[in-house]
């Protein structure tokens, strides 16, 4: 069962890398920010899976903190950084 958790964590990490490559060359800055939010959620899942795969229960606490604080970046982006319309060529 530990192997299954680690395998799914690996799959989610591969997912994350694909989204990272897409975020680096994404069309608009809002899409890149959505990618960053997806990183937060996927990272929470990976940390919870790693806790089951032998990293200990402390990893669950880290996942909890990450779930709380990943949203702050999104709010800061929507309220402060997203000023004007970003065109494709922007």
């Amino acid at each position: 069962m530990t192997t299954l958790a680690l395998a799914i964590a690996l799959f989610l990490l591969a997912n994350l890398v694909v989204a990272l490559v897409a975020a680096a060359r994404g069309p608009t800055s809002a899409d890149r920010m959505l990618m960053a939010l997806l990183f937060g959620t996927t990272g929470t899942g990976i940390l919870a899976l790693l806790a089951a795969a032998g990293a200990g229960a402390a990893a669950v606490d880290v996942a909890l903190v990450l779930a709380l604080l990943a949203a702050i970046g999104g709010i800061a982006f929507a309220k402060r950084a997203w000023r004007a319309r970003h065109h494709v060529s922007d």
Partner: peptide
């Protein structure tokens, strides 16, 4: 540990609802 794991879920639901609303309105 099980309760802590299940606590993450409503937290993420609330946070993602808030962020989604903020980004869509902006």
């Amino acid at each position: 540990v099980a309760m802590k794991l299940l606590l993450i879920w409503p937290l993420v639901l609330t946070a993602s609802a808030g962020v989604g609303f903020a980004i869509a309105r902006r």
